[in-house]
């Protein structure tokens, strides 16, 4: 009996040593891949930073209002943000490749699914970010134009535009992520269509007198405004 136990222990010990002997090289390969990935990520980061610096992306970002959105979120400027993003994307990619080398059952499948999902996540984040920038820019454009034209309710106009663009951006993001696709599309269509129809009915039918007065005021005001302010130059 003692022999059997010893033999069993020897076998387990042998298996363990064998497993470690098999695992260690893969672990070392993983570490090498991660270190190489870190170096590649650094190189790509500096190359991208130099290239984006030549294209004056920060200036374009300032003009588009993206820089302000980034500053409000306590994020670095666009060039730095993209450079750091490429660094982390590259390194995480190498880390995942390194992990897949370990050959752990089940992990490879999860890593594969994550790789497939990552592009959609990036696109979704991009859609949200662009939506925020465009909403910010267009709502501010509308506000300034309405204020300088003497429009009676400039903030309502501005907020309406911001609201519509945000709804559109969120719907597109959820559709990209594949979250309740049909529900989101249907809900967006219903809300947007109902809102536009309601506004058209309220203004054109319910407020036809007001609509007529607004048009008369607008067409008359444009000429009067030019005559009632001093020539600036």
């Amino acid at each position: 009996m003692r022999q059997t136990i010893l033999r069993a222990l020897e076998q387990v010990y042998g298996n363990l040593v064998h497993m470690i002997a098999e695992f260690l090289p893969r672990f070392l390969v993983m570490l090498i891949i991660i270190v190489i990935g870190l170096l590649v990520a650094f190189v790509l980061k500096y190359i991208l930073r130099a290239l984006l610096g030549l294209t004056k992306l920060d200036r374009v970002s300032d003009d588009a209002g993206a820089s302000r959105v980034l500053r409000m979120a306590h994020l670095p400027p666009m060039t730095e943000l993209l450079s750091r993003s490429i660094f982390w994307v590259t390194w995480i990619g190498f880390i995942l490749v390194g992990l897949s080398v370990l050959g752990v059952a089940g992990l490879q499948e999860q890593i594969s699914r994550l790789f497939q999902f990552l592009p959609e996540v990036f696109v979704a984040i991009l859609i949200l970010f662009l939506g925020a920038v465009i909403a910010n820019f267009l709502s501010r454009t509308a506000l300034l134009a309405a204020v300088n034209a003497g429009h009676p309710s400039p903030k309502i106009l501005s907020w309406s535009i911001r609201f519509v663009i945000w709804i559109l951006a969120i719907s597109m993001t959820l559709e990209e992520l594949g979250v309740a696709r049909r529900t989101v599309i249907s809900a967006f269509s219903i809300i947007f269509g109902a809102t536009m129809l309601g506004l058209a009915i309220a203004f054109g039918l319910g407020g036809q007198d007001l609509a007529r007065k607004c048009l008369e005021r607008y067409l008359g005001d444009t000429k009067k405004k030019e005559e009632k302010e001093p020539q600036p130059l």
Partner: peptide, 24 residues
């Protein structure tokens, strides 16, 4: 460039009107 530069210049219009009124 705290905001879009074209927007920034447009935002000066009401203040210019205030100065104009005061001057007149």
């Amino acid at each position: 460039a705290v905001i879009n530069r074209d927007h920034l210049v447009q935002a000066l219009a009401p203040l210019y009107r205030g100065m104009t009124y005061s001057f007149l």
